[in-house]
C-alpha cells in the first residue's frame, strides 16, 4: 500500500500499463506538459512524445483517430479534458467506437479508454461541470466507469486499459487531490463489482463518483441517530452490480439512489426501476434539479445534492 492521490493513482495505473504493453499509448491536448490537471505529469519524459501524444483541439479527431488506431490493434487512452468537450466527439464514440465490433460482425475490436473528467469543480459553470454518465450507460457497446477513490482510480483504469471494449472512464475533477491507500503493482478492479463502503441494515444508499463521499458523510450522521446505512459505491454504471444492490435493497427494504447528475433520466432512475421490479423495497432517488450548473457559489450550490439532503431523505424513508 502507498498513500497517494486520486490523480497520482491514475497516473501510476497508466504508467504501469504502458510499461507492460507497448501498444498502449495516450493522446490528448496538452499531454506533453502533463495534461490540464497534471494527470500525465512526467509521463512524456518516460515514454516519449509518440506514446504520450499531444493533439490539436480536435475532439472528433482525437476520438475518431483513436477508433482507427484501436481497430488496428493499438490501445489508445484518450484524454477529453472535460466530459463537456467530449460532446464534440459523440459520433466517434457512439456511432463508431461503440458499434464497430457489432456492425462489422465481430471482425474488429475497439479497445480504447476515453477519459472524461466530470462534475462540479470550483465555479466551473455550465460548460465545465456536467456529469453525463447516463448518456453513455444508455449506449450498447460501451463500458462506463466512475471511480470514487484513489485505489479504484488505479484498479479501474488498469482494467479499462486491458479491456477489449471501449470504456468511458469518468474521473471526478473534485477528487483529484483526494488521498487514500492504494495497492502497489498489479491491482485490478473488475467491472460490475460494487464496493460496500459501510454496512447497515436500515437504508441502502447507492451512489458513485464524488457523491459517494457526500453519502458517506450523511451515513455517518445517520449512524449517530441510530439509522444504519448500507452504502454501496457502484464503481461502474455499465455493467452495474445488480446482485449487491438487489440483495441489499431486499434486506433493508429501502433504497435511496443518489447522484450528482441531473435526476431526470439519470442512471439512478434505472437502478430505482430495477429494484422496484425485483424487490418490494421502498425506492427514492436524489439528483440535481434539471438546471444548468451556475457560476456564483450560491447558484452552483443550489443544484448540489448535499449530505443534509441525503440524510433528510433517508430519515423520511424511515418515517422520521
Amino acid at each position: 500500500m502507498a498513500r497517494m492521490t486520486y490523480l497520482a493513482a491514475a497516473r501510476a495505473a497508466l504508467a504501469e500499463e504502458m510499461r507492460r504493453d507497448p501498444l498502449v499509448w495516450a493522446v490528448g491536448e496538452d499531454l506533453g506538459r502533463g495534461g490540464v490537471f497534471g494527470q500525465y505529469a512526467g509521463l512524456v519524459e518516460e515514454f516519449g512524445p509518440e506514446r504520450i501524444s499531444d493533439a490539436p483541439i480536435s475532439e472528433a479527431a482525437i476520438l475518431g483517430a483513436s477508433v482507427g488506431a484501436a481497430l488496428m490493434g493499438t490501445r489508445p487512452v484518450v484524454e477529453m479534458r472535460f466530459s463537456d468537450f467530449a460532446l464534440c466527439a459523440v459520433d466517434e464514440l457512439v456511432n463508431q467506437a461503440a458499434k464497430a465490433r457489432f456492425m462489422f460482425g465481430g471482425q474488429g475490436r475497439v479497445p480504447l479508454v476515453v477519459r472524461e473528467p466530470i462534475g462540479m469543480w470550483r465555479s466551473s459553470a455550465a460548460q465545465h461541470s456536467q456529469s453525463l454518465e447516463a448518456w453513455y450507460a444508455h449506449i450498447p457497446g460501451l463500458v462506463v466507469a466512475c471511480p470514487a477513490t484513489p485505489a479504484d482510480n488505479k484498479g479501474l483504469l488498469k482494467s479499462a486499459i486491458r479491456c477489449d471494449d471501449p470504456v468511458v472512464y469518468m474521473e471526478h475533477k473534485n477528487l483529484w487531490p483526494l488521498e487514500g491507500e492504494v495497492p502497489e503493482g498489479e491491482h485490478l478492479v473488475p467491472f460490475g463489482v460494487a464496493r460496500r463502503v459501510r454496512a447497515g441494515g436500515d437504508v441502502t444508499i447507492v451512489s458513485w463518483s464524488q457523491q459517494v463521499h457526500v453519502c458517506a458523510e450523511a451515513a455517518e450522521a445517520l449512524a449517530g441517530e441510530g439509522i444504519g446505512v448500507d452504502l454501496i459505491d457502484l464503481r461502474t454504471l455499465w455493467p452495474w452490480d445488480r446482485v449487491m444492490v438487489l440483495e441489499s435493497a431486499a434486506r433493508t427494504g429501502r433504497l435511496l439512489v443518489c447522484h450528482e447528475a441531473v435526476a431526470v433520466a439519470g442512471f439512478g432512475a434505472e437502478i430505482a426501476a430495477t429494484v422496484a421490479e425485483h424487490t418490494s423495497a421502498k425506492v427514492r432517488r436524489l439528483g440535481a434539479p434539471r438546471a444548468p450548473v451556475g457560476y456564483a457559489p450560491p447558484v452552483e450550490d443550489a443544484v448540489r445534492v448535499g449530505a443534509a439532503a441525503v440524510a433528510a431523505t433517508a430519515r423520511s424513508m424511515m418515517g422520521r
Partner: peptide, 8 residues
C-alpha cells in the same frame, strides 16, 4: 478521422 487513426 478513423483513417487518420489507422495511419497513426
Amino acid at each position: 478521422v478513423i483513417a487518420a487513426g489507422a495511419a497513426h
